[in-house]
Simulated scan of single mutants.
Amino acid sequence: MRDPRTLYELAPDAEVPAGLPLVAGLTGFADAGGAVAQTTAYLRSTLETRVVAAFDTDELLDYRARRPIIMFEEDRLTDYRPPRLSLDLARDELGQQFLLLTGFEPDFQWERFCAAVLGLIEGLEVGSTTWLNSIPMPVPHTRAIGVTVSGNRSDLVEAMSVWRPTTQVPANALHLVEYRLQERGHPTTGFVLLVPHYLADAEYPAAAVAALEAISASTGRIFPTDALREQAREFVARIDEQVAENGELAKLVHALEERHDAYMEGTTVRSPLTDEDGEPPSADEIAAELEKFLAFRRNRDDERE
């Protein structure tokens, strides 16, 4: 393996206090409800940040699979914003510092990227690492978003993890980082938000709010969420209106509510994410419900035009 340190460039003034928490969220895979994208964009746009290390995009990104956007105006190209992946020093709403790793998930060189991140964590004497992920699950939007918690911080697992499966999942780059950090005994927490499957392809502001709450629980950092909460209320109000006008969707949401509530009350229901036989829904079933919901939304939009 080539030297992982050549995969990024440190800022000349990269002075970071020891012991800071690191928060990570990379986009590109299984970002249900746009939770990771919304959260990281919100943090970068609302907080004071300064680049500590910038990763080499040309080494890590498959441009043909995820083409960047360039602006064309009438007869000329006017703007190009290359994809970025960086580690930044940020301050929360109270001025408390933390490190923020955001950008695209690498397409290539996962082991080298992981080694680079671990080297930065060790060199900067990071106190703990927290990362975000989100997946679609058959849960209702009328209940608080739950999380599955991984890592070696048992206090957070016991307090917050509502679903603890034993299963195989497609990995992403931060799974590998967490796995390697656990091997080293570094305090590590992964939050997987369980987003309603019928909202997986939408930007669901409540998912970003839940993500920020999880980060606060793990790091003690405080973030401004008023704008996101207002967006979430408006979004849910629109969804409630659409569900109320469609009998099949109303039945779906009601069934999900009953299953969720029974599980949370500690009954014999195995999980809020399974059917009566204890089986999770198939990908085809989730896709069918999602397509039904989106078709209804499109019809409503057409009627209003």
Rank of each mutant, 00 (worst) to 15 (best):
P4K: 08
R5Y: 07
L7S: 04
Y8S: 09
A11S: 12
V16T: 03
V16I: 10
P17R: 13
L20G: 11
G25M: 10
A37L: 14
Y42G: 00
V51F: 06
V52S: 05
F55L: 03
D56M: 09
L61C: 14
D62H: 06
D62P: 00
R64V: 08
A65I: 04
I70C: 05
M71K: 13
E74R: 14
E74L: 12
D75L: 04
R76M: 05
L77P: 00
Y80T: 05
R81S: 11
R81P: 12
L89D: 07
R91L: 06
Q97I: 07
F98W: 07
L100P: 15
L101P: 01
T102C: 08
F104M: 09
A116E: 02
V117T: 08
V117Q: 07
G119Y: 08
L120R: 09
S128P: 08
S128R: 12
L132N: 04
I135H: 15
M137F: 13
V139N: 00
T148R: 13
V149D: 08
S150R: 13
G151A: 05
R153Y: 00
E158C: 05
R164V: 06
P165Q: 12
T166E: 08
T167I: 09
A171S: 13
A171M: 13
N172T: 07
A173H: 14
T189M: 01
G190C: 10
V192N: 10
L193R: 10
A200F: 05
E203K: 15
E203Q: 13
A210E: 12
A214H: 10
I215D: 10
P224H: 11
P224V: 02
A227K: 10
A227L: 03
R238V: 01
D240M: 01
A244T: 02
L249D: 02
L249W: 03
H254I: 03
E258Y: 06
A262V: 00
Y263C: 06
L273R: 06
T274H: 05
T274M: 04
E276Y: 00
G278L: 10
P280W: 06
E285C: 02
I286W: 03
I286K: 14
I286Q: 11
A287R: 07
A288Q: 06
A288W: 03
E291M: 05
R297K: 14
N299M: 08
R300M: 03
E303W: 09
R304S: 07
